[in-house]
């Protein structure tokens, strides 16, 4: 049977060998990370964004690269998922975008700070994370089994992307990732459910029509509201 001194040698020897291996791999990681993370793209804005990220402990609710807390969404691909217009609007007043839902602190960022945060998240989204986050493997299968939705082929006006409508709703076969499960319906056939006046009343202040709605009140000028309502109603013709 093993003696105590042999056991000691096992402990010290093993620790020595594996520490050396770990340090060697760390050295190699230092050499490879700049290319894998596109380090050259770390602009001053990205660095400022990282400081904002840390100074406000964003990791205390969100995950980034899958690391952090599990109270708020994973943000590695936030720019790709939501688009910059949506993120800008959201960061101005987070609670307004998710009424009656989980809250995020409003940090009262100015426009430059919002640009920096988005620059940081955009850089993060372009880091090669060995395939993380994986595309949901069952999503395609689910799509294949559900009935084909009505999809308009009419060109969608720019106002819809400016106001990030397709962050929640799908329209013309695009968007709707975030909103589908929250009950945000596709807009292609909304004309069947609401006439022009109803649409206008709903969009201008959703909570007035349905107090517990999850749809935010989007700041629109009367002309913009008119443009959206006219387009959506025209889809039935």
């Amino acid at each position: 049977m093993l003696s105590k001194s042999q056991a000691k040698i096992f402990f010290l020897g093993g620790t020595g060998v594996f520490t050396a291996a770990f340090l060697a791999l760390t050295f190699d990681t230092h050499r490879k990370v700049p290319a894998q993370t596109r380090q050259a793209n770390i602009t001053p804005a990205v660095d400022r964004g990282k400081h904002i990220w840390e100074d406000n402990n964003c990791m205390g609710c969100h995950t980034l690269f899958g690391e952090g807390a599990y109270y708020a969404p994973e943000l590695t691909k936030a720019v790709e998922r939501r688009g910059k217009p949506w993120l800008k609007m959201f960061l101005k007043d987070p609670e307004a975008m998710f009424p009656n839902d989980r809250k995020m602190v409003n940090y009262h960022f100015n426009d430059a700070q919002i640009e920096d945060v988005i620059a940081f998240l955009e850089w993060c989204g372009n880091v090669d994370l060995n395939g993380f986050p994986a595309k949901p493997p069952l999503a395609e299968k689910m799509k294949a089994t559900s009935a084909a939705p009505v999809v308009t082929t009419k060109p969608v006006p720019a106002i819809f992307d400016m106001m990030a409508c397709r962050g929640c709703h799908s329209l013309g076969g695009q968007g709707g990732m975030a909103g589908a499960a929250l009950g945000a319906p596709p807009l292609d056939d909304v004309y069947k459910r609401k006439n022009k006046a109803e649409l206008a009343a709903w969009i201008s202040d959703p909570a007035k029509v349905k107090p517990d709605t999850k749809m935010p009140k989007i700041p629109l000028t009367p002309a913009q509201l008119e443009e959206i309502v006219t387009f959506l109603s025209s889809l039935g013709n």
Binding site: F10, F11, T19, L25, V33, L129, G131
Partner: peptide, 26 residues
């Protein structure tokens, strides 16, 4: 000694499970 030896034998390089998906080499 055996137990803490096993701990370091597995634990040091086991740090790698935090490095899967953060932008470190494959």
């Amino acid at each position: 000694y055996i137990i803490v030896g096993l701990t370091f034998l597995s634990g040091i390089l086991g740090t790698g499970h935090h490095y899967y998906y953060i932008g470190a080499p494959r």
